[in-house]
Amino acid sequence: MAAIYPYLVFNGNCEEAFNFYKSAFGGEFPYVGRFKDAPSDQLMSPSDGERIMHMSLPIGKTILMGSDSSTTMGDVSAGTNFSISISVDSKEEADKLFQALTEGGKITMPLQDTFWGSYFGMFKDKFGIDWMINHDTNEVAI
């Protein structure tokens, strides 16, 4: 069964925004990763080191997720700063959804095993909506 989560993208102030959301909703961040935590061949730009690569905040039965845009990808603006993130139970389910939803769209990161222990891919569907498909292959909290 797939779970769907909102994924927000910021221009370098993700941590500030998530601390604000935490002050309103409470809770704790199960994971905060910075671009500098990625293997050196994965780092987008040295100036991105302190930017947030991924963080999450559980809110009730859902999880608010977010990251900063990398400087190499450029700034995002309201309306282009979110994705729909789908977490699935198996690689097979990830493959099936990825294939179905990318029809007529543009793949920005093919489904692949990642250094953070997930099977993950990203794309823009034919309607211009950004999606992420994720299957956690380890026990790391999202």
Rank of each mutant, 00 (worst) to 15 (best):
M1F: 05
A2R: 12
Y5T: 04
Y5W: 07
P6C: 04
Y7L: 07
L8I: 10
G12R: 04
N13T: 15
N13Q: 07
E16Y: 08
E16A: 09
A17Q: 02
A17S: 12
Y21Q: 08
A24Y: 13
G27W: 01
E28S: 14
F29D: 12
F29E: 02
P30T: 11
V32G: 02
G33I: 11
F35C: 05
K36R: 14
D37V: 02
A38V: 03
P39N: 06
D41H: 10
Q42H: 03
Q42S: 10
M44W: 07
M44V: 14
S45H: 15
P46M: 05
S47D: 15
G49P: 09
R51I: 07
H54D: 01
S56Y: 07
P58M: 10
K61N: 15
K61M: 09
T62I: 15
T62Y: 08
T62S: 14
L64F: 07
S70C: 07
T71V: 15
T72C: 10
T72H: 05
M73Q: 14
M73K: 09
G74N: 04
D75Y: 12
V76M: 06
S77W: 13
A78H: 12
G79M: 07
N81P: 04
S83R: 05
I84M: 12
I84R: 01
V88N: 00
S90N: 06
K91R: 11
K96N: 14
L97D: 07
L97Q: 02
L97V: 09
L97C: 05
F98M: 03
L101A: 01
L101E: 02
L101H: 05
L101R: 01
E103N: 13
G105W: 02
G105D: 03
T108M: 04
Q112E: 10
D113H: 03
F115A: 01
F115N: 10
W116V: 04
G117M: 08
S118K: 10
Y119E: 01
G121Y: 00
F127K: 06
G128C: 12
D130V: 07
D130Q: 14
D130G: 07
W131V: 13
I133T: 01
T137Y: 09
N138D: 12
E139S: 13
